[in-house]
Amino acid sequence: MRTREIIDVAMKAGEILILSGAEVYRVEDTLARIFRSYDVEAECFVLLSGIFITAKGEDDEVISVVKRIKGHINDLQKIEKVNSFSRSLMVKAVSYEEAMEILNAIESTPRYRFSTRLAASGVAAFVYSLLFKSSVKEAVAALFISLMVFTVKENISRVGFFQFFEYFVSGMISGAMSIFAVKLFPEMNLYKIIIGSIMILVPGVAMTNGIKDALYGDTVSSIYRLAEAVFIAVAVASGVGIMLSIGIRWV
């Protein structure tokens, strides 16, 4: 396999990892493993917004490639598959065509169905409400509100609005519906319902990955992840806060 083809394979693998929410150190380790599998001398520098690769090709030719990457979601299934693929190359290197076929298949792997993710969001809201010592009635209210929040958030995401707006609207819906629930059932605690219903919006993965990147010395990516987590938290809090300031007088 020619060096340029190996770079294409590594770049494809790295792109899938970043778009799936992988940590920077994991992406760099995967790319390094791919190059070692084919005995190619290369240096890789990864940011959440791009991948930089420089490799020594045939006749000591130096090849540099840059890939701009925009956006990401959390898809642990694809991350696990790319990791397994890179490790399998250490055992047996495959041809360029076969490698790209495998990576294209991983890239096109469908996410869990909407109904499955919707059900998971409802269960998460219900369980976290109970964890924060809510009553069963309050947990059920948080469950239904979480289902509504998740549905709206997914639809906004498909339209393509920027992330801050997506979480801001989700926070507003959570606050408004929680106030409405307490209006119907005054014995319920407003704040416990809100806590349960916004748990699916908490940027736990971004915070965890940001801390892990910092521990591995990837300061730039760590700051990016933690800043993203802060902006999401501010967006959700702003949405909930606005609805509380408007509707609290009617509770």
Rank of each mutant, 00 (worst) to 15 (best):
R2V: 01
R4V: 15
I6V: 15
D8W: 03
D8I: 12
V9Y: 10
A10L: 11
M11G: 06
K12Y: 09
A13D: 03
A13P: 01
E15S: 15
L17G: 12
E23G: 08
V27F: 05
I34C: 04
F35H: 06
R36I: 05
S37E: 04
S37P: 08
Y38E: 12
V40S: 11
E41F: 14
E41M: 11
A42H: 14
E43S: 13
C44M: 08
V46C: 08
G50Y: 03
I51Y: 13
I53P: 13
E58H: 15
D60A: 09
V62W: 07
S64F: 07
I69V: 11
K70C: 09
K70W: 11
K70R: 09
I73S: 11
I73N: 07
N74F: 04
K78L: 05
E80S: 14
K81G: 05
K81A: 14
V82G: 15
V82Q: 14
N83F: 11
S86L: 03
S88F: 07
L89F: 03
K92N: 12
E98S: 12
E101L: 12
N104G: 13
S108G: 07
T109W: 10
R111K: 04
Y112A: 06
R113A: 02
S115W: 11
T116A: 02
R117I: 10
L118V: 12
L118F: 15
V123L: 05
F126D: 00
Y128V: 09
S129I: 13
F132A: 01
S135H: 06
V140W: 00
A142T: 01
L143C: 09
S146H: 03
S146A: 12
M148S: 12
M148E: 02
F150K: 02
V152E: 04
I156G: 00
I156L: 05
S157D: 15
G160A: 02
F161L: 14
Q163R: 13
Y167H: 08
V169S: 06
S170Y: 01
M172A: 05
M172D: 01
S174W: 00
G175F: 10
A176H: 04
I179W: 07
K183A: 02
K183M: 00
K183D: 00
L184M: 14
N189Q: 07
L190C: 00
L190K: 01
Y191K: 07
K192V: 08
I193E: 06
I194R: 01
G196V: 05
S197E: 01
I198A: 00
M199R: 00
I200S: 00
I200W: 00
L201P: 03
L201D: 04
V202N: 05
V202I: 14
P203G: 08
M207L: 15
M207C: 13
T208Y: 06
G210Y: 09
A214E: 11
A214G: 09
T219C: 14
S222C: 02
A227K: 10
A227P: 04
E228S: 12
E228R: 08
E228G: 12
A229M: 08
V230Y: 02
F231W: 02
I232K: 04
A235Y: 09
V236K: 06
V236M: 04
V240E: 01
I242K: 11
S245G: 13
S245F: 07
G247Q: 05
G247C: 03
